[in-house]
Simulated scan of single mutants.
Amino acid sequence: MRSDRLRIATYNIHKGVRGTGPAKRLEIHALQRGVHELGADLVCLQEVRAHHQGDARRFHRHWPQQQQADFLAPDGYQVAYRSNAYTRGGEHGNALLSRLPLVDIAHHDVSDHRLEQRGLLHVTLQWLDAPLHVLVMHLGLFHGSRLRQVQALGRYLGARVPAHERLLVAGDFNDWREQLDPSMGLLGLQRAVVARTFPARAPLFALDRVYLRGLEALHAEVPRGAPWVRMSDHLPLLVEVRAL
Rank of each mutant, 00 (worst) to 15 (best):
His14Pro: 06
Asp129Thr: 12
Leu26Phe: 12
Asp208Ala: 06
Val17Asp: 00
Gln68Phe: 13
Met1Ile: 08
Arg213Ile: 09
Glu37Thr: 07
Arg2Leu: 15
Ala95Thr: 07
Val193Asp: 02
Pro162Asp: 15
His122Thr: 01
Met137Tyr: 02
Glu178Asp: 14
Leu45Ala: 03
Arg160Met: 15
Arg2Gln: 13
Leu42Arg: 02
Leu132Gln: 05
Ala30Asn: 07
Val194Arg: 10
Phe205Glu: 08
Asp112Cys: 13
Glu116Ala: 11
Leu212Ala: 10
Gly119Phe: 05
Asp208Phe: 04
Leu147Gln: 10
Arg82His: 12
Tyr81Asn: 09
Ala73His: 00
Tyr86Gly: 09
Gly158Cys: 14
Pro162Arg: 11
Pro223Thr: 07
Leu212Phe: 08
His133Pro: 04
Leu237Ser: 00
Asp175Ser: 03
Arg209Leu: 08
Gly119Asn: 08
Leu218Tyr: 05
Gly154Glu: 13
Leu141Phe: 09
Arg88Val: 14
Pro199Leu: 03
Leu135Gln: 02
Glu165Gln: 15
Pro203Asn: 11
Glu27Phe: 02
Pro203Met: 08
His52Gln: 12
Ser232Ile: 04
Gly16Tyr: 04
Arg224Met: 11
Arg177Lys: 10
Gln68Pro: 06
Trp228Pro: 01
Gln46Arg: 06
Val35Asn: 04
Arg25Phe: 11
His108Pro: 10
His92Tyr: 15
Leu141Tyr: 06
Ala220Pro: 00
Val123Tyr: 03
Arg2His: 11
Arg99Tyr: 04
Arg191Gln: 09
Leu31Asp: 01
Leu100Trp: 09
His133Gln: 13
Arg148Asp: 14
Leu180Asn: 00
Gly225Gln: 07
Asp109Gln: 12
Gly19Tyr: 06
Arg224Asn: 06
Glu216Ser: 12
Pro162Val: 14
Pro227Asp: 08
Ala85Leu: 13
Pro22Ile: 08
Ala69Phe: 10
Arg230His: 10
His113Lys: 13
Ser145Gln: 09
Leu125Pro: 02
Ala73Gln: 07
Asp175Leu: 02
Ala30Phe: 06
